[in-house]
């Protein structure tokens, strides 16, 4: 992010990162003793000061009911796909002739936010037979284990269209 970010956004990003880190600290330390809490606040504040321009789970998250609903749907869909991707990968690995036809294709995403694109790339990596190799602006380069190259356009379109609708509502 560049230095022209409005002051209000920087404050928001700082608070979001601080809250996320502190929550992790609480879960990890599993204690509410005063000295433990003080160390947590100091360390979280320091890290947030240095890295507030980075991304956290809630950075750029839209605080609307639709976004929360889309979030739950996204995770439901995601875990279903994760399971499916493992089963299909297992089938490929276990079948003697090893039926693969790999390719690296590029796909355009209509997501604008950084966090939305990051989540899209990560989700693609964890779903059936596809892995994000590189990202340049709105273009994602995706490695596929099995590409149906009879209809390239539709095959590549399908890769992103599974998660885009959810992420578009969540992050824009």
């Amino acid at each position: 992010m560049n230095s022209t970010t409005p002051e209000i956004h920087r404050k928001r990003d700082f608070i979001i990162l601080f809250a996320t880190l502190f929550l992790f600290w609480l879960l990890l330390s599993n204690s509410l003793a005063v000295d433990v809490l003080i160390i947590g606040v100091v360390v979280s504040a320091f890290i947030s000061l240095v890295f507030y321009q980075g991304l956290t789970f809630f950075t750029e998250f839209r605080l609307s009911p639709q976004a929360v609903v889309a979030g739950f749907k996204f995770y439901g869909h995601f875990f279903k796909e994760l399971l499916r991707s493992n089963l299909s990968m297992a089938a490929i690995v276990l079948s003697p002739p090893l039926p693969i036809s790999p390719a690296i294709v590029k796909v355009r995403t209509r997501l604008k936010s950084r966090m939305g694109r990051l989540m899209l790339a990560n989700s693609i990596t964890l779903t059936p037979g596809t892995m994000t190799v590189a990202m340049e602006g709105e273009w994602l380069y995706i490695h596929c284990v099995r590409l149906d190259d009879s209809d390239l356009e539709a095959a590549t379109r399908e890769i992103v269209s599974e998660f885009e609708p959810y992420l578009e509502v969540m992050y824009g």
Binding site: P102, I104, V105, A121, T125, T132, H143
Partner: peptide
């Protein structure tokens, strides 16, 4: 997913051999 993406990207940059089965490489 992040670490595998970075590994794959690094491999591609250093031109690691691809399988002959690979049909397209847009990158």
């Amino acid at each position: 997913p992040l670490s595998s993406q970075v590994l794959a990207n690094a491999a591609h940059r250093s031109k690691v051999r691809k399988s002959e089965l690979t049909s397209i490489d847009d990158l």
